[in-house]
Measured scan of single mutants.
Amino acid sequence: TTVKLGDIKVTFDNPEKAKKYAQKLAKIYQLTVHVHGDTIHVK
């Protein structure tokens, strides 16, 4: 599962960890989390 934020891409083996990371980023940057299959976009 890949978390994308602009040019930053972080890949996790564990989808749950990816989701938590995405939510953490979203909170920090006051953005929202969008899940598209294996990719989680923070924008």
Rank of each mutant, 00 (worst) to 15 (best):
T1W: 14
T1E: 03
T1H: 08
T1P: 04
T2D: 04
T2K: 05
T2L: 07
T2A: 04
T2C: 13
V3D: 02
V3L: 03
V3R: 03
K4V: 15
K4N: 06
K4E: 08
K4I: 15
L5D: 02
L5S: 02
L5P: 02
G6I: 07
G6D: 03
D7K: 15
D7L: 14
I8R: 10
I8P: 00
K9R: 12
K9C: 15
K9H: 11
V10K: 08
V10Y: 09
T11A: 07
T11S: 10
T11K: 12
T11I: 13
F12E: 00
F12V: 02
D13H: 09
D13K: 11
D13Q: 11
N14T: 11
N14C: 12
P15S: 08
E16P: 00
E16S: 07
K17T: 12
K17G: 06
K17D: 14
A18C: 11
K20V: 08
K20F: 08
K20T: 06
Y21Q: 02
Y21N: 02
Y21F: 13
A22I: 06
Q23T: 08
Q23H: 10
Q23M: 11
Q23F: 09
Q23Y: 10
Q23S: 07
Q23I: 10
Q23D: 13
K24L: 15
K24M: 15
L25W: 05
L25R: 00
A26N: 02
A26T: 02
A26K: 05
K27C: 15
K27F: 11
I28F: 11
I28A: 07
I28D: 08
Y29D: 03
Y29H: 09
Q30V: 05
Q30T: 05
Q30E: 10
Q30M: 09
Q30H: 13
L31V: 06
L31M: 11
T32P: 02
T32A: 09
V33F: 06
V33G: 00
V33W: 07
H34V: 15
H34C: 15
H34W: 11
V35D: 07
H36I: 15
G37Y: 06
D38H: 10
T39E: 09
T39R: 03
T39A: 05
I40L: 08
I40E: 01
I40T: 01
I40G: 03
I40Y: 07
H41R: 05
H41W: 12
V42N: 02
V42T: 02
V42Q: 01
V42W: 03
V42F: 10
K43E: 11
K43N: 08
K43R: 13
K43A: 12
K43M: 14
